[in-house]
Every structure is written in C-alpha cells, then in structure tokens.
C-alpha cells in the first residue's frame, strides 16, 4: 500500500491534490507582481533559519551582546556569513514587503472580497518593521543605542498610554541592558509567534480566494485570457526566483557587509551623521524638519500623530475607498510614494 493511499484512507488528501491541480495563475502584464509576496515569504524563511543559528551564540546583555556578535563574525566558522545573510535578508524583506504592498495598492487588489487579506498584510508589514527595530538594537552598538533611545521616546507620544509604553519597552527609565533582554525576547519569541499566525491567515485567504486581477485585465474577453497552472509551472518559477535571491544575498553579504560599529556607551554623545535604518528614514527626516512647536503641539508629537493617523487610514483603505474616488486615491498613493522617496534621499544626501 502506498503512502498516499494509506493517508487517503485517513484524510481526504485527494481534495487538496485536486485543489492544487485546478489552481490557475492569470498570465498578463502584471503577473510579475504575483512573485513579490513569494519573495517576501522566502526572505522570512531565511530570517528564521539564520536567526535560529545566530541565537546559538548570541548572548543578550549590556556586557555580552556586542562581544558575542563580534565573536560570531570573527571566530565562529561562517558566523560572518550567517550574520550578513540575516542582516541583508532583513533589509530586503522590508523592501519587498513595501513593494508588494504598493503593487497591491495600485492594482486595487485590496477591493472586495479581499479587504481582510489587505488588513492582514498591513499587520505583517507593521510587524516586519518592529522586527527590524528590535533586531537593530541586538548588536548593542552606538547607532542602535541612540536609535532605540529615539524610537522608544517616540512611543511616549502615543496618547494616554505613552509613558507606560516607553517604560515597558525600555524596562526602566533609560535604555539599558534590561532593554536589550526585552528586545531579544520580542525579536526572537513574541514577534515570530505573532507573525506566523498572521502569515498563516494571509496565505490561507489568498489560497481560498485566488489571485486578484486588475479591472483592465478582468474586462479582457475570456478567449483571450491566458493562465498557467499554479503547480508546477508557477511554483517552479517561484523557486527559481528564490534561488536567484539567495545568490544575490550571498553576493551582497560578501561584498557589502554590514558593519558592527562601536560598542554602545551611555556616556558618549550621539555621533554626527547618525541615522536610523533606511525604512525609517522618511519619518526621521520629517521629524528633523518639523519646527519645535506647531499649533499647540510640540513638533515631534505632531509628526508622530500624523504618521500614526496616516498608518491607520492606510490600513483601512479597502473600507474607505469609494469607486467614485479611485483616481483620487491613486494620486494620494503616488504622492505618498514620492514623499517617501524624496525624504529618504534628502535624509541620505544632507
């Protein structure tokens, strides 16, 4: 008796096989966008694998964190490779999620019946940014120390629970070794668990509802519509792209390594040219440009509230957008992309 028939007697696996065989992927000018979610998924898998490996040597704590990262990259065989892959795939992960989000936004794929897929995706994007922020501190270097001071201070601007949040995040009044323990736990225990739950929901919804096609493609007469089977045609293309990504990351890891920098020291001034990770740059630059006082608010509180409100509106786009105002939403989206690009570039150039 074959394994398949043994299983079939107990579970209806034929139904799954039938589903996989029937699944089709629309082929048109936008098919390439369908790969972005898959690439993000691959980068997440890489994060989990290299993250588990790094955790075997990493030691949280103000006296040990920096030293253990140095030990990993200088003494452990291929330690440098694991850390570089972890850092590079983390950055690319955020990049591809953003790209994925904007292609979904501009192709209006969030519309009924996929509102909740969009919401789950936005939650994943937010979680990815918290992943990045919490992981950034772990090497306990100067840049991370000040980035964390600023980031946790920003949490203090949340109405009503701000100071509670800052206290809980810092594990005290100041960023210290206790903060590091907390961030390590957030980064390696809490976030992976929450992320996998939402990732599961996200993927199940996509499987159940199938791929979204933009309106222009939907109006194409049926005889002109082309599709390819999901399995194996699309899956093989997916895997090939993953392999290419892995090679690109390996090249980046070798030729453009991420520096460890100087060890964090609470008795030094923030160094000139300090900046956060690139995906926070547009917000960082905005905070730099805002005056000390705006209206009745402090400039920074104003900025943080604006980003907070903006994020919530963005999350609720599928529920707020009315077909009448499609063009308006698209131009708002273009405006936001331009704003992000210009302020990021400004932040790096000035």
């Amino acid at each position: 008796m074959s394994v398949t028939s043994w299983l079939q007697e107990r579970f209806d696996i034929a139904a799954v096989q039938k589903f996989a065989a029937k699944k089709q992927v629309p082929v048109f000018f936008g098919t390439v966008w369908y790969y972005l979610g898959g690439v993000s998924l691959f980068l997440f898998i890489l994060q989990v694998l290299t993250g588990i490996l790094l955790s075997l040597y990493y030691q949280p704590g103000a006296a040990t964190a920096y030293e253990s990262v140095k030990f990993i990259v200088s003494k452990v065989e291929f330690g440098w490779l694991m850390r570089e892959i972890h850092s590079w795939s983390a950055n690319l992960f955020v990049f591809f999620i953003f790209l994925h989000m904007f292609t979904v936004f501009f192709s209006k794929a969030y519309r009924k019946p996929r509102e909740l897929t969009w919401v789950s995706g936005m939650i994943l994007l937010a979680l990815a940014m918290v992943f990045g922020f919490s992981g950034y501190l772990l090497p306990w270097n100067e840049l991370a120390y000040f980035a964390t001071k600023v980031g946790t201070d920003i949490a203090g601007a949340v109405p009503f629970i701000g100071s509670f949040l800052t206290q809980v995040l810092r594990a005290g009044d100041e960023v210290s070794g206790a903060t590091l323990s907390r961030f390590y736990s957030i980064h390696t225990a809490i976030l992976p668990l929450v992320f996998i739950v939402f990732l599961g929901i996200h993927l199940i919804m996509i499987q159940v509802q199938g791929m979204s096609v933009p309106e222009a493609q939907e109006n194409v007469p049926p005889e002109k519509k082309k599709t390819m089977p999901f399995f194996p045609n699309f899956v093989v293309r997916d895997l090939m792209l993953w392999l290419i990504m892995l090679n690109v990351i390996a090249l980046l890891a070798v030729f453009f390594p991420w520096e460890i920098g100087l060890k964090a020291d609470p008795l030094t001034s923030a160094p000139a040219g300090i900046r956060p990770e690139w995906y926070f740059m547009f917000m960082f630059q905005t905070l730099k440009l805002l005056p000390a006082h705006l209206w009745f608010l402090e400039g920074e509180v104003f900025g943080i509230l604006m980003f907070g409100v903006g994020g919530i509106i963005w999350l609720l786009v599928p529920f707020l957008e009315k077909p009448k105002y499609t063009k308006l939403w698209t131009s708002v989206g273009v405006g936001i992309v331009l704003y992000m690009i210009v302020l990021t570039a400004w932040g790096y150039l000035v």
Binding site: F146, K149, V150, I154, S269, A270, E300
Partner: peptide
Amino acid sequence: THLDCTVQ
C-alpha cells in the same frame, strides 16, 4: 529635549 539623544 527633543527625542532623548545625548548632545555634544
């Protein structure tokens, strides 16, 4: 007094 960095 802005966002808690250490001045120089």
